[in-house]
Design a protein around this nucleic acid. Structure first.
Lengths: 346, 346
DNA sequence: TTGTAGGCGTTATCAC
DNA sequence: GTGATAACGCCTACAA
């Protein structure tokens, strides 16, 4: 059964398809009242469903935005998407969500596909180091907002997060609780954001005249929560075998911090009584574990909303002004960090 | 700058647009080798990007599937989507993800939108009780797979999960550990799936001649992890104030179970030594808390993959056979359930 | 092997 | 106020 078109309606109503179009698209073009009612009635009777493809082809826009993130399974990114979708919906846009799985090839494939589908706006947490494709597409009219991953020295509007400052704040918080042997566990330092947190840690340690103690995972990027957790456990084991183990451990993300806590408990080391633990991200689950995780909040949901707002602005504006936003970290104090235990204190 | 079309290429190559189309769409229509190479070369030089809208309008298909779920922020659903997207990608489909936020109006709005965008396949965890819209659309060629929420007595292919059996298995597991006073905490019983788990619990208790002990939240449906957690805490408080509090608590989902555990700890009641806790869902975070959560695994990722496979089959097949799948629950034994403590036994 | 021409469903320009 | 008609970019009979 072929779908009903405006021509079908026109035939039945004995009017031209032009009139039908004017009525059904709520054009401000003048149409007599009775004609309008007639068309609307018939459209309803026939269960008319407009074919947006025709409209979009004509108008060269798709009311769709694309979002490319490493993986939706990471609760940080699902919150981001959630925020994006909320703003998109309010503006009658739908969103195509793509998981790049940390794979540059896949990322590029997705970019191509959505551009072919005439998507004119893209929010991306890019994993690829080669931005030439993106920049070329931008020349042809694609609007892009980069989130979460800083794209260095390019003409792309971005929402950054002050990772360096986050690392700094976290470390200083530990220090202000009297900790001097503070370990840092991190996934592979292959992304600018991770390097920034790390640098923040390093700078805080240096300015307090403390010796850094770092464990870095060398496994390639992964894309599920459990492996982050496992990495946290593994790195903690390594760290504990040091000659002078830390009284506080700072993890590069919350999931890894969960692993740290779990490993400590398993070894009979109490958190936070014996060792304090600090996370990074501020995902909701941090308040569901015991002890609740002290962490640095990265505003995921808000970041999504803001990214989408910026993108829609960008797509509308003729002049397309370039602007960046730097979101600030916020310390969330909960139960996993306390003062350094007396017995081990210097 | 107008985008490059096949006509532009045709003009420059001194061939017809038909030939260009045949080359660039990898048609098996015969084209001479040198013509082919020429066209490909020019297409490349001009950075030609096909406009899928034209093709789709012509062929009346969009290579897109829609997914409607309550909220992507729930890790169960993000895993489902993750599975869906994986299969979709392998088949060159992209997915439009929509959060219905437990709002039937929004759900309907999304259904309309994607159908207008000529999406021919939909995977939905429907919240609406009125399925007439869906059924009407199916008559016009929309393929639908219902997941997670049983749609009673309708002609829609679905992937069900045996919630009743899950509730049964969970309760029996508690019983086989010697527990006789087993409490059940649940969100509002306004969805078939929840009622099924509840019924499983009830049946297991009855067949063991035990008295049910139930706390139901009366708050309306919510859509974030933290409120489930809070509900778990609140209901636990209520349950503990009973004259004869339980030695085991079974929660209708993992997030709520986290709340149960948290509240117990906060009241100085040890888990699992004093009270055992059983969850339901099997999200990854269950293994990251302390003690690790014993739970019923609902295969989220696999459900997504299967749903997408079924959908693609359905969309291809001319005859569109109807078939349902019933996924089976699986007990995951971890640390939050142990035998009933001696002192409170009998 | 290549070209011509019509149509997919819509909107917009121009006549009437 | 209404109706032809020509686009939008692509594919595909059919003709050459």
């Amino acid at each position: 059964m072929k779908p009903v078109t405006i021509h079908d309606i026109a035939r039945i109503a004995n009017v031209s398809s032009a009139t039908v179009s004017r009525v059904l698209s709520n054009s401000d073009y003048p149409v007599s009242k009775k004609m309008k009612e007639k068309v609307q009635r018939i459209a309803k009777e026939l269960d008319y469903i407009p074919n947006l493809l025709g409209k979009q082809l004509k108008e060269n826009k798709s009311m769709t935005i694309g979002v490319i993130i490493p993986t939706i399974v990471n609760p940080f990114y699902s919150s981001v998407i959630f925020g994006i979708e909320e703003i998109a919906r309010q503006n009658d846009f739908t969103v195509i969500a793509c998981n790049s799985l940390h794979d540059p090839t896949l990322e590029e494939e997705y970019i191509r596909t959505i551009v072919e589908k005439q998507v004119k706006g893209l929010i991306i947490s890019s994993i690829s180091t080669d931005k030439t494709l993106l920049k070329n597409l931008m020349k042809t009219g694609l609007s892009v907002i980069a989130i979460d991953q800083k794209i260095e020295g390019e003409g792309i509007s971005q929402i950054e997060f002050d990772y360096h400052r986050g690392g700094l704040i976290a470390t200083k918080h530990l220090q202000s609780n009297g900790h001097r042997r503070i370990g840092y566990v991190t996934s592979k330092l292959d992304r600018p954001s991770r390097r920034s947190i790390y640098q923040g840690y390093l700078d805080a340690m240096k300015s307090a005249d403390l010796e850094p103690l770092v464990e870095e995972s060398n496994s390639k990027d992964v894309y599920n929560a459990v492996s982050e957790f496992d990495t946290g456990k593994k790195l903690t084991q390594k760290m504990l075998s040091a000659t002078n183990p830390p009284t506080a451990i700072f993890a590069c993300n919350d999931m890894m911090a969960f692993g740290v806590i779990n490993e400590l408990w398993q070894q009979g080391i109490r958190v936070p009584e014996d060792v304090s633990v600090m996370g990074f991200d501020g995902i909701d689950f941090g308040q569901m574990i015991n002890p609740q995780l002290t962490t640095i909040k990265q505003p995921d949901y808000e970041m999504g909303k803001m990214a989408c707002k910026m993108l829609l602005d960008l797509m509308q504006g003729e002049d397309k002004p370039m602007f960046d936003v730097m979101l600030q970290p916020k310390l969330i104090e909960r139960g996993s960090v306390v003062g350094v235990p007396i017995v081990t204190q210097a």
